[in-house]
Every structure is written in C-alpha cells, then in structure tokens.
Amino acid sequence: MSRSPARRCILLRGTTRLSRALQASMLALAFSVACHAEERAVASPGGLEAKLEYCKTCHGLSGQGYRGYFPMPRLAGQQPQYLENQLRAFIERRRTNPIMANVAHVLSPGMVSALAAHFRSLDPKPFGGAPRGSAALGKRIYEEGIPEANVPACSACHGMDARGQNEIPRLAGQLYDYTVGQLTGWAKARGQGSAVDTSAIMAPTAHNLSRSQVEAVAAYVGYLP
C-alpha cells in the first residue's frame, strides 16, 4: 500500500528535522570540545594564566612584590619594554640572577609580551615597609639630584611620578630592599659580559650615591603610588 503524498511529506519533514537536530547537536559537541581545549590551553603549563600564577608566586599575588629570602621586585605597573629587556638580559647573562635566567629561558617572545602587558595593567598599593625617616631627603635627591656628587635628578629620566617610560623602569611602589640591593650592587649584577646595554646609564649614578643616600631614595620611591 503506497503512502499518501501528505504523509510522505510529513515523514520527509521528520527526517529533515532529525538530521538538523543531529547537525545542531554535533555542532554543539564540537563547540564544547573546542571550548574545553581552549580552557586547557589557558590552564596548561604553557598557558598565559598558568604562567601568570607562576610569576605571582614570587612577585606577589597582585604583582606588588614580595619579601622572600631575596626581595622579589614589584612588577605591577612596570614598563613593558623594561620587563622585556630584563628578561632578555637574564637569558643572555648580562644581568646575573640564576633563578630568573632559568625562569626567562622557557618564555616565548609572545608570552613575554603578554606577561608584560598584564603586569603593566595592575595597580596594587605599594608593598610598603620602608623606614620613613629618610624619605624627605630621598625626595630632595629624587627631584634635584646631588650636584656636588655628580648625581643627576632621578626624576629627569624616571619622571616626577617615578612611573618610568619605555626602557626606563617605574620605581614608584618598588620594594625598599629591592631598590637598595640593586643600587648598591649595580655593577656586580648588571651590564655583565662584553655587550653594552642600557644598564650602563645607571652605573656612574649608582656608584656616586652613598649607602644612606640610596636608602633615602629607596624609601621615598617605595611609598609612591
């Protein structure tokens, strides 16, 4: 017995609907698999989120820096170009730091840019903890320099707000111990090897500052927002 045209039409429509539904569900499935793959990429060891979490275990949960056995510098609000330069300097051993050389070594150029952009966007409160006694002297040195000791005003390059620009780092809110450590040990850690890099600009200034002057400047910039 042959089916009536109307009934055949309904059947046909039914199969079309079924195949559409099948298509839709397969699309949904494919989409959800893609989404999971994306999630995994972000959470995987090579992903940006996982790498950021890794950076923040040492540099503070909001990039504000952390005082471990060594002071770990604030990365929040840092100039991206400065961060990229330093990571390259660690790898090329122009800047001596065994931990950071290993850390930087496994970062792809794309990852470095993404990390630098992320830290640039963070704005936590300064870590604090610097002795406040010498901050007034620090402010004077920062803004006027010490002409008789051939120390230029820090603000000339780092800016009045100490936020830096391009390859010149932000100092505002930097950890006191870190700034003191860098300025007192500049020539021993920076500009190593035969290649000349931008760190050479700071070498004479760091050399001409006394310990107490370094401490004063570090205390002043450490509290700047």
């Binding site: 060891p45 996982a50 471990g68 060594f70 496994v106």
Partner: peptide
C-alpha cells in the same frame, strides 16, 4: 634551587 620553569614550579630557594 631551580624549580621547574617549564612546569611553572617556582624555585623554593628564592624565599627559603
């Protein structure tokens, strides 16, 4: 001393 940078394991040495 080194952590495992490629697996995002931080060095213990930096803090301890």
């Amino acid at each position: 001393l080194d952590g495992i940078p490629e697996a995002n394991v931080a060095s213990c040495y930096a803090c301890h």
